[in-house]
Design a protein around this nucleic acid. Structure first.
Lengths: 339, 339
DNA sequence: CTGAAAGCGCTTACAG
DNA sequence: CTGAAAGCGCTTACAG
């Protein structure tokens, strides 16, 4: 059976389809009596408005396109969950695409979304993205776009990012004040933004707290579980353990957990661990992981609302917003309260 | 700047827009020379076809709508990732909605997706869903729909589910053959499908292997971390520990980990743990969790391809498919190879 | 209070 | 090889 159209309803009611269209939109032109009859027919016949046709005439799709690097990363799935929440609340749909950290895929996704004439875009760029061409194209046609978490600056779009350096410093301040002095860092490669910021925060915080910067205690590796494992083994071979390890992310922290377990050592008794992450993932660790908290729902919420605000603006905003979300330190069981 | 249309290109090239439309679709009517000119103009002017208009005329959207209960559950985010993968491969877009385990939201999501005239639907129903009305409506208008993981049977739609009972039995067979005899079960409530199936599998497997069914070793609780924690504490108070605990899901397994850690006991030395889950989450445990593996990517892949096959069928399929995915047992570090 | 006309940007037979 | 006509299902001024 084909879908019912306004014409079908009109025929049944012996009116013209304009009358039906107006009745459905509660237009003052139409009598209450007629509206009632139309709504009854809608129910009876099982009419569902064709949004595609509506979108073509109104030139609005009430749809936002989302581009993320990876959905298997729970940070992004939490962000998306909250984006969908916020979008639904404001009557928008979400078309979701995944770039798999691949610039070409990302570009193709964005082109498709433009083809679908989404009202706006929410993008977290892939690690390999270097060519801003597609974004300049978007700029040209005035489609609102907001970058979140991973942004390309200086393109004139609004951005929502975490204040990673400050979050790192705050965390180390806190443990230093509790009396810890020996703090190591399992760092990511400094070639990548995130690794660099966190490492800088670490160094700055040590200096600020008058702690010794021991180059043997900065172990540069990757971002995966095995990297954390290897880093701890390396540290252990050297003999003197630090009191606390700041891991560049939760996967690296997990690797450290595995190594520590393997060696028969105890967390937090023999060594404490701090990672970056959010509440739900921190709970997955036993003992639960002390984190520099990056709230994904907060980011998703701000991102989607910033975007929809821009979509709804008459004039395009003169100045893009640059929103920085502060991180907060959450002291969990992986670090003792006192050294 | 407004988006370029075929008309704009036609005007520039001094042809009619039908020519442009045909050239773009590589229609044999059009000369190679003309096609070349059209493609050049497309590039130069930055034309992106309006898919909304195309969808309206072709009456196909090349879009599938997905409805899941919860995106914060990593099982679903993995499934969705592979759905998007599979859809993209076959040139479909994905509109994603989340029901939050709420029947009314689920219904509204489906109505919206119907309004968007998606070519097909992929649905995992919420736990509270009881009214099949919306699905009967879908049936009436012949929109292909495939249920995955959580299905409503007997509505005549294809379904993709795991063989939970068999998976449970296989797992217990394996540990029983390795010599284990004392196996407890932290069960979910038997009111819910998933809890019942797993518990039945557990009992059947014990019988089959001639093991004693100790009612004190079936602890019925919920599905959350705390439930696992409480269950282990309860078991521990009773004095005699089993050799192995089969936890109804990974969150409950995690609760058991936390309790065991708290009590200063060792996994797998003092007690082994088996849970349900998939490879990536099993790795998050230290020691890594022995699992009855439910591969989310496999499910997503099968679901999306089954759906697209049905979309592409000329005739609607006489008989809906009922695909059962077998689970496999993955012996990881949380259980010793021998008792 | 109801309707006729025009249009959104495309595609699809059908002519020439 | 190119184009004119009709249509997809809706909305939006404009008339009456």
């Amino acid at each position: 059976m084909n879908h019912i159209t306004q014409k079908d309803i009109a025929d049944k009611l012996n009116v013209t389809r304009i009358t039906v269209s107006k009745a459905l939109r509660d237009h003052p032109d139409i009598s209450d009596e007629m509206k009632k009859r139309v709504h009854e027919a809608v129910k009876e016949m099982g009419y569902t408005p064709n949004l595609i046709a509506k979108q073509l005439t109104t030139r609005k799709t009430l749809t936002i396109g989302v581009v993320v690097p990876d959905l298997e990363n729970s940070f992004f799935s939490y962000v998306i969950d909250s984006i969908i929440d916020g979008a639904t609340e404001r009557n928008y749909h979400v078309i979701l695409t995944v770039s798999r950290e691949n610039e070409a895929t990302e570009r193709k996704n964005i082109e498709n979304l433009i083809g679908m004439r989404v009202d706006g875009l929410l993008v977290s760029v892939s690690q390999s993205t270097s060519n801003p061409e597609i974004f300049e194209y978007i700029k040209k046609f005035n489609t609102p776009l907001v970058f979140f978490d991973r942004a390309i600056e200086e393109l004139g779009f609004s951005t929502i990012v975490f204040n990673d350096k400050q979050g790192t410093m705050d965390a180390i301040d806190e443990v230093a004040q509790a009396g810890y002095t020996k703090i190591a860092h399992f760092a990511g490669y400094s070639s990548i933004n995130i690794g660099r910021e966190r490492c800088e925060g670490y160094k700055a915080a040590l200096r600020k707290n008058g702690l010794q910067l021991n180059s043997e205690w900065i172990i540069e590796g990757g971002y995966e579980v095995e990297d954390g494992y290897r880093a701890f083994m390396k540290l252990h071979e050297k003999g003197t353990l630090p009191e606390i390890i700041l891991a560049v992310n939760d996967r690296v922290a997990l690797g450290a957990y595995k190594a520590i377990r393997k060696l028969g050592l105890d967390i937090p008794g023999d060594v404490g661990i701090i990672g970056y992450g959010f509440s739900d993932t921190a709970q997955l660790f036993s003992p639960s992981l002390t984190i520099i908290n990056q709230d994904p729902r907060k980011m998703g919420h701000i991102a989607v609302n910033t975007l929809i605000d821009e979509i709804l603006m008459e004039e395009k905003p003169e100045n893009p917003l640059s929103i920085i979300i502060e991180e907060d330190f959450q002291w969990k069981s992986s670090v003792n309260r006192k050294p």
